[in-house]
């Protein structure tokens, strides 16, 4: 499903010098895989995730997604592909403070040409599936961290992406809440969702099927 070949990401340091965040990355991820990307701080984990999520356009190399050569796509085409195929979960949840739970779930759909009735149905399904119907009118600040991340995951998958990217999804949660989220990820993976997560936790990584270790921008 995903093939990276010789992907590199660098930032200019001045005087013509470059600082490499990622070096010569070759990575294949199959449909239904659950990959945990690990490594110390500054290893390039989040950068890799943003490249996979097609947020970052300043890299070189080849990136095939479902056989589509994304490295040949224009930014707008990549954004369109991303919207169709990829969902995100963030460490800080990043729920929109001024929107209710219901509205937070509706936001990704509103960016994707769903009709009003389809959006209502999909949001309703997500609320049911994640058992947060009772919270739908609450604002993020009225939820616990675990509940907020639950909404974050629901929001990430509501548009039925093929790939779920998660950047330290349990980083701000205490252990029991983190475990709940990881069980949820495993369940989603078992249902066919491809997942790539960045984590520092060996325990969280164990929920995945394989681990990719990064160090100083290299896969080791």
């Amino acid at each position: 499903m995903i093939r990276l070949h010789n992907v590199e990401r660098s930032y200019p340091l001045g005087r013509g010098q470059l600082f490499y965040v990622l070096r010569d990355i070759d990575l294949d991820i199959s449909q239904g895989d659950f990959v945990s990307v690990m490594g110390p701080s500054g290893a390039g984990k989040s950068t890799l995730l943003h490249i996979l999520g097609m947020h970052d356009h300043g890299w070189t190399g080849e990136y095939f997604f479902d056989e589509t050569a994304t490295h040949h796509l224009k930014a707008k085409e990549r954004a369109s592909l991303r919207n169709e195929k990829i969902g995100f979960v963030f460490q800080q949840y990043h729920l929109l403070d001024d929107l209710t739970v219901y509205e937070n779930l509706d936001i990704p759909l509103s960016y994707r040409h769903y009709s009003k009735s389809e959006r209502t149905a999909l949001v309703g399904d997500a609320l049911d599936r994640f058992q947060i119907v009772g919270k739908k009118d609450l604002y993020p600040r009225q939820l616990s961290g675990g509940q907020q991340q639950l909404v974050g995951v629901a929001r990430a998958i509501i548009a039925q992406p093929k790939l779920l990217l998660a950047d330290e999804p349990t980083g701000n949660l205490h252990s029991s809440q983190g475990e709940e989220i990881m069980k949820l990820f495993r369940k989603l993976n078992e249902e066919g969702m491809t997942i790539v997560q960045v984590t520092h936790s060996e325990k969280n990584a164990s929920y995945g099927k394989r681990i990719v270790q990064l160090r100083d921008g290299w896969i080791v």
Binding site: H55, N83, F88, F90, H94, L96, D97, P108, Y111, R112
Partner: peptide, 16 residues
């Protein structure tokens, strides 16, 4: 800024 980043990550186009 970060809210806008989140919205883009969630699929918002520049026009949104």
């Amino acid at each position: 800024t970060s809210e806008i980043g989140v919205r883009v990550a969630l699929g918002a186009q520049p026009r949104h």
